[in-house]
């Protein structure tokens, strides 16, 4: 396999929160607690998890919109964490982000054509005239009329704004796009339009994606590889079809079972879905998932599980897979 586009190792990001009154104390929230993964060229890699698991923080830290506290990020062999301002400027052209909320992602006081041309001009890539032509091409590329550039963001619908956000991310011809819940604020029919557009762009432009989502259906459709996050850590990663067919971690099983499926014949009682995600300020001892886990053992309460490579592509952090134990009971994995 060729050199991966992105290699993230042991990435950590902590936030300091001051809380309490009248004697506030500083608490450290481990929003990202040492995550590692690899994204290959042309691949859509999913970061999946519920709110507060750190998946959005991960996306922003990789782009250094948030400064990482520990760990390394390598983009195409280049060190991102220690890149100086000039190197960072060059790297910025190669990795972009699209956002969840189409109403917050565009400057309301700027004509969208100017907003799309701006990066081209700032980086000195084109003359103004060339940039305008490129903007028209970009608008067409994302399915908007070529002359939409003279308008202001408020004149567009949510789905159209999401297209504009995608167009902006494409201006500098990036290789990697971090998509932070790009369709979860949209209606079903618009969601499928945007997903279709993204997949089309991925194939035509050979883009890589880090696709951040809580929606397993969307992930199954769009991504090839996924990692499941829980309280700042990745607990399972592997190819999408395998994880859906045979999830290893009990939390992955729970997520899959909780995802509603548009099929009343598959109606289930959601039996084994227990508890809620604990606060990241004070995560449970040992394996963070143990208070909700149906297979909890003594060791889970004390020791955080090591990474275990189950096969060449899949790995999991769960005591059920340490030596001598056979993993999940067969009935549940199916």
């Amino acid at each position: 396999m060729s050199e991966p586009l992105l290699r993230v190792s042991n990435l950590k990001k902590f936030f300091k929160v001051r809380r309490g009154f009248p004697n506030p104390e500083t608490v450290i929230v481990r929003a990202l607690d040492g995550i590692s993964f690899i994204v290959q060229r042309g691949q859509a890699f999913a970061l999946v998890g519920e709110s507060g698991c750190g998946k959005s923080t991960a996306g922003r830290t990789i782009l250094r919109l948030l400064e990482p506290d520990e760990g390394s990020i390598e983009f195409d062999g280049q060190d991102v964490v220690n890149a100086d301002a000039k190197q960072m400027r060059a790297l910025r052209k190669r990795a972009q982000i699209i956002f969840q909320d189409p109403f917050s992602s565009l400057n309301p006081r700027m004509r969208v054509g100017n907003a799309l041309a701006e990066p081209l001009l700032v980086h000195g890539l084109m003359s103004k005239k060339e940039a305008n032509e490129r903007v028209r091409d970009l608008l067409e590329e994302v399915g908007l009329p070529r002359d939409a550039g003279i308008r202001f963001p408020h004149e567009f619908s949510g789905g159209q704004r999401q297209r504009l956000g995608i167009a902006r991310a494409l201006t500098l011809n990036p290789e990697l796009i971090i998509a932070d819940e790009p369709v979860s604020a949209l209606d079903v029919s618009i969601q499928s339009q945007i997903l279709t557009l993204l997949r089309d762009l991925q194939q035509r432009l050979n883009l890589s994606f880090i696709f951040i989502s809580h929606d397993l259906g969307v992930v199954r459709y769009f991504c090839q590889v996924m990692a499941v996050m829980y309280l700042g850590k990745i607990i399972e990663k592997g190819p999408v079809p395998k994880i859906f067919d045979e999830p290893l971690h009990p939390y992955t099983v729970m997520l899959r079972d909780a995802s509603p499926v548009p099929d009343p014949t598959a109606r289930k009682a959601f039996e084994r879905i227990e508890g809620e995600v604990p606060s990241a300020v004070n995560p449970p001892s040992g394996c963070h998932f143990h208070p909700r886990c149906p297979h909890v053992m003594d060791v889970c309460r004390k020791v955080y599980p090591e990474w275990i490579d189950v096969d060449a592509q899949r790995s999991v952090a769960c005591h059920l897979y340490t030596e001598g134990r056979g993993g999940l009971p067969v009935a549940e994995a199916g």
């Binding site: 029919s189 859906f244 548009p262």
Partner: peptide
């Protein structure tokens, strides 16, 4: 149009336009 978590979706149908 709904991508499903319980089975593979090769192509997703898109309703053109908006309400």
């Amino acid at each position: 149009s709904v991508p499903r978590s319980d089975r593979d979706t090769k192509t997703l149908y898109s309703i053109p336009g908006a309400v």
